[in-house]
Design a protein around this nucleic acid. Structure first.
Lengths: 215, 215
DNA sequence: GTCTATAAATAGATAGAC
DNA sequence: GTCTATCTATTTATAGAC
């Protein structure tokens, strides 16, 4: 690390911050180097001095974003041993993490959810896989402990949980204005209610009513 | 309607089809008129002959996409009066609709889920609202009939259902390669399993175990 | 309706002064 | 490290022939 001249938030860092904002809002194709330079308060040429290309800058932004999310996911592991409480906590932390880092969350989700032109797909995929694997493990533990039904695969339960969080985050600006929707800006409340539905729905209770126990 | 010279799929229609594909895959900013013309087998100038601007073409594509989805959502209304069956059917039809029209689905979802530069936001918003309202109504009917618990708001249940469908569609290409995930390409199976969890979770069953009935 | 040619602006990226 | 000036390719969009 060649130490920078003296100022902490100078040059390179400001460009990275501006790029994170803009790439997060509009995506790779929707942002020009001129726009990034303008927001960072510098010139186009200076952007190209600090980064070899637009793709290089984008990848650097992705790397930083993934690091933030990976670290947060790792830290969220230790939270008691009550399954219900762990699920609730995990959901709430997940939503709060995205709410606090909307641009970074957008970046990662875009890479995972859109076909995207081969950019940071691999990096974002790792974050996604890690998160997914952890949630699956949680549900499998619960099922192995006999707490959950065995006619619903753990990966499917994991998809449902992550889906709720991701969708709430992605559509928050639209949902907020819909009638009866008063839970968008209260992660704790949403996590509590959604987790309740998932937990009750997953509890061991064979032979529901009229349909066979088809897998 | 000034009838076209003689061929049904000629000129304008081919351009619209090409634009739907490309805008759906890469979004507004990621597609150039040259690319659309190339795929439609015509020239740039001809694209501008049929449409006043790139935004015009994009809006036309959005309009058509929304029409397809609005019609399908309307048609899905009448399906028996068994709540469980209706929810299952609605989920399955929704997933199948997106699977069959991936580009149109992507277009609409992108407009709703990304901040996006003011483009077809309004159009897509209508489709989204309509779908959301219908699902909320379904859950409210069930709750009014006394079938569902009343400590989980209907809009939240609706968000959970739609979230599962949207997320399954959006991340299908990533999920497909994850261990234990064998439900991505079987809408019937996914709808059956996910609906089971939601239904069981929403069934009337007050005072779960240890936590109060907080709303 | 479709084309070639072109205009005008902007994109990503480089050269070289300071 | 930062800048102005510039290069080249590509962008949206238009003009006008056929």
């Amino acid at each position: 690390m060649p130490e920078p001249s003296r100022n902490a938030t100078s040059g390179r860092d400001e460009i990275l911050a501006a790029a994170t904002d803009l790439f997060g809002e509009t995506g790779f194709d929707g942002v020009s180097i001129s726009a990034i330079a303008r927001r960072a308060g510098t010139s186009k040429a200076n952007v190209f001095h600090h980064f070899n290309s637009k793709e290089d800058l984008y990848m650097e932004v992705m790397r930083a974003a993934c690091k933030v999310f990976n670290r947060a996911v790792k830290d969220a592991g230790d939270a008691g041993d009550d399954f219900d409480e762990r699920l609730r906590t995990l959901m709430r932390q997940d939503i709060e993490l995205m709410s606090v880092n909307p641009d970074r969350a957008h970046l990662i989700l875009r890479e995972v959810l859109e076909s995207g032109p081969s950019h940071g797909r691999a990096l974002a995929g790792e974050v996604f896989d890690e998160q997914f694997t952890e949630v699956v493990a949680l549900f499998e533990q619960a099922r192995d402990a006999g707490a959950f039904r065995d006619d619903v695969p753990a990966p499917l339960a994991a998809v449902m949980m992550i889906a709720c969080n991701v969708f709430l985050f992605q559509s928050r600006n639209v949902l907020r204005h819909l009638p009866g929707v008063d839970f968008v800006d209260d992660p704790g409340r949403f996590a509590r209610l959604a987790a309740r539905v998932l937990l009750e729905g997953l509890h061991h209770r064979p032979e529901p009513a009229g349909q066979g126990t088809e897998t």
